[in-house]
C-alpha cells in the first residue's frame, strides 16, 4: 500500500491485539462495564467513540505546537466536550431519532479515559494524519472488546442478540428453554462485565506470554 506505511498500519492493528486500550492499557473500563448489557448499545457506543476519537486526535494534533503545556489537559477536555456537543446538536437537528439513542452515551464519551489517554500519549507528539489513524485504531480496539463483552452478556443474560430471541422464548419455554435452560440474570449486572473482561485478558495473556508483566 502506498497510502499507508507499515508503521501506520501498525497504528491500527496494535490496539486491536497486543496493545488493546481495554485489556492491556486498562483504560475505558467504566464505560465498558456500564453499557455492555446489550450488543446494540455496545455498537452505538463504539461508533460514537470512533468518531470523537478520530476527530479529537486530529484536532489536538493540529494544535499540538500552540497548546500551553500547563493547561493542556483542560484544552483536551474542551476539545472532547465541544466535539461531543457539536455532534449532539447536529444530530438533534437533522437525525433526531439517532440523537435520542445516543444521548445516553454523551456523558460517557466525554469521560472516557481512552480519549484523553490518546490525546496525551500520541496526538500531542505526532502529526495529524498519524494521530487520526491512531485514534481510529484505538477506537476499533475499544469497539472490539465492547462488542465481544456485549455479545456474551446479552446472549447469556437475556438470551437475545440485538433484541432477537436467538435461544427461544424463556416464558413460552421454546428453543433451549424447553430443556430446562435458564437465562443468567447476573450477566446483566456490571460485576459480570468485569469478569468477562477479566476472562478476555486471561485468554489474551495466556496466548502471548510477552504481555505478562514481571512482578
Amino acid at each position: 500500500m502506498g497510502l499507508l506505511s507499515k508503521k501506520d498500519i501498525k497504528l491500527i492493528t496494535d490496539p486491536l491485539a497486543d496493545n488493546n486500550p481495554i485489556t492491556i492499557q486498562v483504560l475505558g473500563i467504566c464505560s465498558a462495564l456500564a453499557i455492555t448489557a446489550e450488543l446494540k448499545a455496545s455498537i452505538v457506543m463504539s461508533i460514537a467513540v470512533l468518531f470523537v476519537m478520530g476527530l479529537g486526535n486530529l484536532t489536538i494534533s493540529l494544535m499540538r505546537n500552540i497548546i500551553p503545556s500547563k493547561i493542556r489537559i483542560i484544552v483536551q477536555l474542551i476539545v472532547v466536550a465541544s466535539l461531543v456537543i457539536i455532534v449532539d446538536l447536529v444530530l438533534k437537528a437533522f437525525a433526531y431519532e439517532l440523537s435520542k439513542t445516543l444521548s445516553v452515551f454523551v456523558g460517557l464519551i466525554i469521560t472516557n479515559c481512552i480519549i484523553m489517554g490518546r490525546f496525551e500519549a500520541f496526538a500531542l507528539g505526532n502529526g495529524p494524519v498519524r494521530s487520526f489513524i491512531d485514534g481510529v485504531g484505538n477506537a476499533l480496539g475499544y469497539a472490539l472488546i465492547l462488542i465481544i463483552v456485549g455479545f456474551f452478556r446479552e446472549l447469556l443474560g437475556s438470551g437475545t442478540l440485538l433484541g432477537y430471541k436467538v435461544l427461544g422464548d424463556p416464558i413460552e419455554k421454546t428453543g433451549v428453554y424447553a430443556f430446562g435452560y435458564e437465562n443468567n440474570g447476573f450477566m446483566l449486572l456490571a460485576p459480570m462485565a468485569l469478569i468477562t473482561v477479566g476472562i478476555i485478558i486471561w485468554v489474551q495473556r495466556s496466548r502471548n506470554e510477552a504481555l505478562i508483566e514481571d512482578n
Binding site: 453499557i35 455492555t36 448489557a37 446489550e38 452505538v44 457506543m45 445516553v104 452515551f105 456523558g107 446479552e154
Partner: peptide
C-alpha cells in the same frame, strides 16, 4: 428517559 443505563433501565 433521558439517561437510564443502556440495556437495563433504558
Amino acid at each position: 428517559h433521558a439517561g437510564e443505563t443502556p440495556g437495563l433501565g433504558s
